[in-house]
Structures are given as C-alpha cells and as structure tokens.
C-alpha cells in the first residue's frame, strides 16, 4: 500500500535558486537568503534517510480558475523564466512526471466532486513555483513529480470555500496515494506572509536590504510557525481566513490547507528548518514525517 512518507512547507522564491548558483540557472549570485537555503539543506539531509518514489507539489504559480489541474505529460524539458524576477531565474529544467499517480489523484479528486483536468499539452511550460520547490527539495531531480495547480477559489469565493475544496483535495490525494504502491513526498509550495517590496536594489542579494515588509506580518508568521511546531494544525486551518487576509498570505493558493489535510491534520510537531524573508515576504521551510504504520 502506498503512503505519504513526508510533507513539507516548501516556499518557492526564485531568489533561493539564484543564490545557490546551480548549473541549470543562468544568472549568478554572490550569496543571499542563507537561513532559508540552509533550512532546505537540513530538510534534504532528513529526506536522504527516507525512501520515496515521487514528489507531489501544489504550486500557486500554476493558476487555474476552472478546477484543479494535474500535469499529465511524462517528460518535460524547457526553459523557465520567472515573469516577475527574470533577472534572477532563467532555469533550464528537465523532469519526469509520474503520470499514473497524477491520473489516480485526478480521478480520486473528481470522485470527491471537485472539478479537475489533466494537462496533456507537451508544449506546456511548467510553472516556476513547482520548479523552485522541487529543485530545492531534490536538486538532482532524481524522482518523478506530480504538479497540481492552484484553483483560485479564494479570489472567486472566499478562503472558507477554498479550504473546503483543498481539504477535499488533500483527502483525495491521500486516498489516491494509498491505492498505489508509491511512497510520496508532498510539498506545499508557498510563502507565509506575502507582501513584497516593490523595489529591488542594484544587487538583489544585498542582505542589508532584506527584512519583513512590516512587523504585523512577522507576528502572523511567528504565530503560524508556533502552531505548526506544536502540532496545532487544526487551529491553523480554523484561523486561515484571518491569516490569509491580514498577512496577505500566499495561503490563498490552498497549498498549506491541502498539505495539512493530506497529512490528516498532524498533531505531532513539524520540524522548522528555517525562516527568512525574501523581498519582504515571510518564508518557512518546515517538515512533517508521519509515523510509519507500525509506529502509529
């Protein structure tokens, strides 16, 4: 029986890839955002001890206003240029998709009453949120992925409606995985507070300019992190409408709600690997290792 072996809050600022200088990314950096990059490094170290077959990521930067979409092409090779920070992220990617797993999740979500669609166009460009979160989790791209779009029901309806749908999607994700033989890592690709600066210095990695946009957002970020670190995930879901609105959070994408639902609202603590700001937004790298069936 398949299972979720790990779940992570895995934010996707392209700055983190830029600062790592991987061969896939054209721009070069001197340094930058180390607390977050070291956080990802610690997460990768923990993941190295966990056997898994695929990564499933929900990304806010694949925005589908009609239903939830799943990548359904076995292999992609292309160039990803961030539309907002093209000076930082021009990344040549090549990745495999676990299409049967994607189809299983899509079918299970449909069965749960959600609007869904498989993405079958081979010319499709994979969104940079998916690429950044997956790169930082597995820079060698050793495992196939499944990318899930963000269907923007927060904008169209409310956070409450979004959460209802993302909880259903999280449960469907879990059921679909359990019906396969896959051991799966889930990634919620999102920041916490998400108010950006609208200016950038001549050297983007100049850390003397980097800080949270405002104190109010920092307080919200710390509150969320403390709740997640102490296993109070249902509280997080309950306060998500306030958090999303007041921290201008990227949780409007549904990624965190989906992850927590797929993990069945863990009451065990999340590991905080790192917190840092990127162009004013608050970002945490956090992981959950569900107990194995015999431990549970």
């Amino acid at each position: 029986m398949g299972r979720i072996v790990y779940g992570a809050l895995a934010p996707h600022p392209p700055h983190l890839v830029y600062a790592e200088n991987p061969p896939q990314n054209e721009p070069r950096a001197e340094c930058g955002w180390e607390t977050l990059r070291w956080g990802y490094e610690r997460m990768r170290r923990d993941l190295a001890d966990i056997e898994y077959d695929a990564i499933v990521v929900l990304s806010p930067h694949w925005q589908t206003y009609v239903g939830t979409h799943f990548l359904g092409v076995p292999h992609f090779k292309s160039l990803s240029v961030d539309p907002i920070f093209p000076n930082l992220f021009r990344y040549r990617y090549e990745l495999d998709v676990d299409v049967p797993l994607a189809e299983a999740m899509c079918a299970e979500a449909s069965k749960a009453g959600l609007v869904t669609k498989m993405m079958r166009n081979p010319d499709f460009r994979v969104d940079y949120g998916t690429i950044v979160s997956c790169h930082l989790t597995d820079p060698a791209w050793r495992k196939p992925i499944v990318s899930i779009s963000s269907q923007r029901s927060t904008a169209f309806y409310s956070v409450e409606v979004m959460q209802e749908q993302m909880i259903a999607l999280g449960h469907a994700t879990r059921r679909a995985i359990e019906a396969t033989d896959r051991r799966v890592v889930l990634l919620a690709s999102e920041s916490l507070s998400h108010r950006h600066f609208v200016n950038e210095g001549p050297m983007p990695e100049d850390m003397s300019r980097e800080h949270i946009t405002n104190h109010h957002q920092y307080l919200w970020d710390m509150r969320l992190i403390e709740q997640l670190r102490s296993g109070r995930t249902r509280e997080v879901v309950e306060q998500m409408p306030e958090f999303t609105e007041q921290a201008v959070s990227e949780s409007d994408s549904g990624a965190l709600t989906w992850l927590l639902a797929a993990l069945d609202f863990p009451s065990y603590p999340a590991e905080l690997y790192g917190y840092g700001t990127v162009i004013g937004t608050g970002n945490a790298v956090m992981g959950w290792a569900p107990p194995t069936p015999k431990e549970a």
Binding site: I84, D123, V198
Partner: peptide, 26 residues
C-alpha cells in the same frame, strides 16, 4: 502580465516561443 518590482517593459527585439495558456491548455 503582473509585475511586482514596479512596471516591466518588454524589450526583446524578437521574442519567440510556443505559448500554452495555463488554464486553457487543451
């Protein structure tokens, strides 16, 4: 075309690509 760092202006003299819409890809 949304931007965050002020406003952006396309300046590639001959941009070339095969575009696929993220929603209506079919």
């Amino acid at each position: 075309w949304t931007s965050i760092i002020g406003h952006q202006i396309q300046a590639d003299p001959e941009p070339t690509w095969v575009h696929v819409d993220e929603l209506f890809h079919d």
